[in-house]
Design a binder for these strands. Structure first.
Length: 939
RNA sequence: GCCUUGGUGGCGGAAUUGGUAGACGCGCUGGAUUCAAAAUCCAGUUCUUUCGGGAGUGUGGGUUCGAUUCCCACCCAAGGUACCA
């Protein structure tokens, strides 16, 4: 075999790796550990396209590189296999999601295997596997059994809280809990019934039941996320959506807000991603202020970041949903308020937030009393105030906040000016600078920084408020009205949630006949006839048996998608363990993920929830680490190049792109496989694609071809622009695919896929092959390499190592190309150069590297051969010429060595003097020569 | 609006702390090889030019002997986020 037969080579080595367990990672090793992880995929029915493996290729290169560097590398893969598409498919076809999921996983695995990843498949996990979700359920139980102690700043066992209540009541306990907890002493606690005690404890648990307002779609029988709603109707199906309160499980992530923020400083993540988590958590410092309502036994709490502007308050605004609205509205205003609330309730939260321009609101007729001046302040409601943030009420300071200003202008409310020497006739003044306050009683003359502590102290003294830190982060709703998710290990006794015994895990999903909600609006699990818990036999039994003594109904909701993905990285460490999430030994050895690769779209979902759970499990002594991912890299999306055929409006006439001109046409997606690299459409194939185009008229260019227009879009089946990696592997080989994906551009940047360029990378691999082969077959010599060849090799080692460490995989592909071109030109065929070269390339193109390694006479996989050592000595002789231009006219050259030796420095100094002679009497004052840096002239 | 990232040939993209802009690849042009094609190899390829040069990294300024790189203002694009008080 003297040709590069990539298919043969790749099959051979993939089989070899599988048979020999080449990438099996051991939990015990003398070597240092390194954990490289990809965000595991959701196995969709559409299969992988060329965009999916981008991050996997990058992490695989890094994992292989780390093996060469002597690390014991953990590089596992699995499937996030619970999810909505499988359930939707099940609803349509009646096919059990488990089956669909299995078929999809099988296809994913085949596609992944073809690309030659160095995954340790013996550690595979699937979130929908009962042996896996047993641990997801177990973590839920730990959260249920925990409360957050704000004094110790960690989660503790609920039994310790019960002990505290029994000994001293709850007055001294500082816990993250519901706002409406009443205080009690030890005696009162002991006097409570067991059920009353459970009710109270539920308000302290880290996962708890709460009434949450949700977007409810009756037709779909499910709650929708804001972005699943488009123009007030569901994205899927276009059904109406209403806002509804539902009792759902929530996760008390807010207890961890500050620690989630602080932890960011300890991890190596891209700054934009850290920023978005910081903004999501949204810490703001300020004060809470209480305003009494005139003539009512009621008060309104507001949070403000600018308590110093309190004398600028001229009205208050409540969210339309605020609890007090009904109580305080006067009879004269009742109709207007009711009309307004009716109107806003029809707008989704998203609509209200998106509409910045229109100002709306209505006066309640009620007044609040200013805590210092006692002045009467009108109370308005307005939908620019959101019920879900802060207290759902604001003190409006029109002169210091633009939204308040606009509201005041619109309704012709008073705009008192409290800033010394600032003109507020056109807009509000929101700067926190040294501008002194005016018309502000005891704050007069003080700038922001001095007024803040003073006003907070005054508020506290008066009992009208206190300094406060507010977070935007809200507790995470954890219930889903769906079938294909983890069941909760929870049953209900007298309406109170109880955990099933943990020894009975996993609580497996029951079969149901249909995957839709029940007629009475219960989640799909309501259809299971076997779905109740027998507390005596500790078994799941038939619903029919519920007798309220020993048999109780189980929770019908399932967990959200992020449940299974929050701690999977620890399960890989010890996936078969039936006694624990992972053994302490395995967790102590692997610690956490050293490098995590995935998309930035998970910034405020998965990546935040995962950090939350890890910190929680750390508190409870389950995990030895308090962050899941040390370093994170976001790979950019690979975009597809869609092809469009233009159809004349209302007619079955298709016009070539060059002939469209001013005609009214509609662009139609054409499958990209009908189009060649010159944008010419295969008309026959297009006609046969869809019956409606079979008899269409085609208006071609003057040369008879039909051209499509191109546009870069997200790669998706529905846009017919998907490129399948299997086809690329078939035609060019996996090594070409791997290198080309890296060569496309910087890993973190979004970039369009264009198969046309792949031949460059492919011919590089052919050239590489030919370095080791001549017409008669494999051939390398044992002669001494030339100086140039050494230089080429060591230059390459240096660059490739630097590039991999910096995740600049695109430039190292170029470096390889240059190296191979140079070695070809040098006619280099010596073993001493070619052996290390193949090791360098092996992370990128592992199949060809293994094959060449074997042909070089080695046994065993190349994957653990040490990475070649860089020797600077081989580069010293290189020289570089630097022209110095002066006044754009004079030009001379300096020839300098890159060597830092004495000679080189002397040479540089000589050059410096030469330069000075040239520059003498002209503008520059000083010329500095820095060895290695060559020349630096300072004016 | 705000935050983040980016804007370099026909295209994807290089350029270390400010030091020969356009590496490498695609495409294109010419040549070699071939009956021919494929494959391969060699040369050229930022624009402009009166062949001396001149211009040039989104736009306009600034700092510097020297700016793709640093500073200021603006324009555009992508992603994120949002009446966050």
């Amino acid at each position: 075999m003297s040709n590069y037969s990539f298919n043969e080579i790749e099959d051979k080595w993939q089989a070899y790796w599988a048979k020999n367990g080449t990438f099996h990672a051991d939990n015990h090793s003398e070597k240092p550990k390194y954990y490289v992880l990809d965000m595991f995929p959701y196995p969709s029915g559409a299969g992988l396209h060329v965009g999916h493996p981008l991050g996997y290729i990058a992490s695989d290169i890094y994992a292989r590189y780390k093996r060469h560097k002597g690390f014991n590398v953990l590089h596992p893969q699995g499937y996030d296999s619970f999810g909505l598409p499988a359930e939707q498919y099940a609803i349509q076809t009646g096919q059990h999601p488990r089956k669909t999921t299995e078929v999809n996983i099988k296809r994913y695995r085949e596609q992944l295997d073809k690309i030659g990843f160095s995954f340790d498949w013996s550690r595979e996990v699937r979130t929908s596997d009962p042996q896996y979700y047993k641990w997801t359920q177990w973590i839920f139980m730990q959260l249920f059994d925990s409360w957050y102690d704000k004094t110790q700043n960690k989660a503790r066992a609920i039994s310790e809280l019960v002990a505290l209540f029994a000994s001293e009541g709850n007055q001294k306990v500082s816990a993250a809990c519901d706002d409406d907890v009443k205080s009690f002493d030890a005696t009162t606690w002991k006097g409570f019934s067991s059920e009353e005690q459970q009710q109270i404890l539920l308000k302290y648990r880290l996962t708890y039941l709460a009434e949450t307002e949700v977007n409810w779609c009756p037709q779909l029988g499910t709650v929708l996320a804001n972005d699943e709603i488009v123009n007030g109707v569901s994205e899927r199906g276009g059904y109406p959506v209403v806002r509804k309160k539902m009792k759902q499980w929530s996760m008390r992530i807010t207890a961890y807000a500050q620690r989630l923020l602080d932890g960011l400083a300890t991890i190596d993540w891209p700054q934009p991603l850290k920023d978005s988590q910081t903004n999501w958590i949204g810490r703001s410092e300020g004060a809470s202020v209480t305003f009494l309502v005139d003539g009512h036994d009621a008060s309104i709490d507001v949070f403000t970041t600018r308590p110093d502007t309190i004398f600028g308050v001229s009205f208050m605004t409540l969210a339309p949903e605020h609890d007090l609205v009904a109580q305080i509205t006067t009879d004269e205003q009742r109709d207007a308020v009711a009309t307004y609330i009716e109107a806003t309730s029809k707008r989704s939260e998203r609509e209200r937030m998106a509409d910045v321009k229109s100002i709306s609101g209505v006066f309640t007729g009620a007044y609040a009393l200013h805590p210092f001046s006692g002045k009467k302040i009108p109370i308005w409601i307005g939908d620019y105030v959101l019920a879900g943030y802060g207290t759902g009420a604001v003190m409006a300071v029109p002169c210091g906040d633009q939204r308040d200003y606009d509201f005041a202008k619109h309704f012709e409310l008073e705009i008192p000016n409290i800033f010394e020497g600032i003109d507020i006739s056109e807009e509000a003044y929101a700067e926190k600078d040294a501008t002194p306050l005016a018309n502000s009683d005891f704050l007069n003359g003080l700038p922001y920084a001095e007024a803040m502590p003073k006003v907070i102290e005054a508020l506290e003294r008066k009992g009208a408020g206190e300094g406060k830190i507010n977070y935007r982060l809200r507790d995470a709703v954890f219930s889903r009205q769906r079938y294909w998710g983890e069941p909760f290990p929870v049953y209900y006794k007298n309406g109170l949630p109880q955990l099933i015994d943990w020894e009975c895990l996993p609580l497996t999903l029951p079969d149901v006949e249909k995957y839709l909600p029940t007629e009475t609006g219960e989640p799909p699990l309501g259809r299971a006839d076997v779905w109740a818990w027998n507390t005596e036999t500790q078994e799941v039994v038939s619903n029919e048996l519920v007798d309220e003594k020993t048999v109780f109904p189980l929770e019908l909701n399932t967990m959200p998608g992020w449940a299974g993905s929050s701690c999977y990285m620890f399960r890989y460490m010890d996936p078969g363990n039936d006694e624990a999430l992972a053994s302490p030994v395995a967790m102590d050895y692997w610690e956490n993920v050293d490098l995590y690769v995935g998309g930035s779209e998970h910034a405020t979902g998965h990546l935040l929830y995962s950090r939350f759970w890890v910190k929680f499990l750390y508190d409870r002594g389950v995990l030895p680490v308090n962050e899941p991912f040390k370093k994170l890299i976001n790979q950019g999306m690979i975009l597809g190049e869609s092809a469009f055929v233009h159809r004349v409006e209302g007619e079955n006439i298709l016009v070539s792109a060059g002939k469209v001109n001013d005609q009214k046409t509609q662009p139609i997606h054409s499958d990209v496989s009908f189009v060649n690299n010159s944008n010419e459409l295969d008309i026959q194939a297009f006609r046969q694609w869809r019956p409606e185009y079979e008899n269409a008229e085609f208006i071609t260019e003057s040369d008879g071809t039909f051209k499509v227009s191109r546009e870069v879009e997200k790669m998706s089946k529905s846009k017919f622009n998907v490129v399948n990696p299997d086809d690329i592997c078939e035609q060019y080989g996996a090594d070409t695919l791997r290198m080309y994906e890296m060569f496309l551009g910087p890993l973190e940047q979004a970039k369009p896929w264009n198969t046309a360029g792949i031949t460059g990378v492919h011919s590089f691999l052919k050239k590489l092959w030919r370095l080791y082969h001549d017409d008669s077959g494999f051939r390398v010599s044992d002669e001494n390499p030339s100086k140039e060849s050494y230089k080429t090799l060591h230059k390459t080692i240096k660059k490739v190592e630097e590039d991999i460490e910096a995740f600049s995989f695109n430039t190292s592909v170029s470096t390889f190309m240059i190296a191979v071109n140079e070695l070809t030109a040098q006619k280099c065929d010596t073993r001493e150069i070619l052996e290390p070269l193949v090791v360098l390339i092996s992370p990128y193109a592992p199949h060809i590297a293994e094959e060449l390694w074997e042909r070089l006479g080695h046994t065993g996989s190349i994957s653990t051969v040490p990475f070649p050592e860089f020797n600077e000595g081989y580069l010293i002789e290189s020289t570089k010429e630097y022209p110095i231009s002066f006044n754009g006219k004079m030009r001379f050259k300096l020839e300098l060595s890159l060597d830092l030796s004495k000679d080189a420095v002397e040479e540089a100094v000589l050059a410096h003097e030469k330069t000075q002679q040239y520059l003498e009497g002209r503008t520059p004052k000083k010329v500095i020569v820095v060895p290695g840096k060559i020349v630096n002239i300072v004016g």
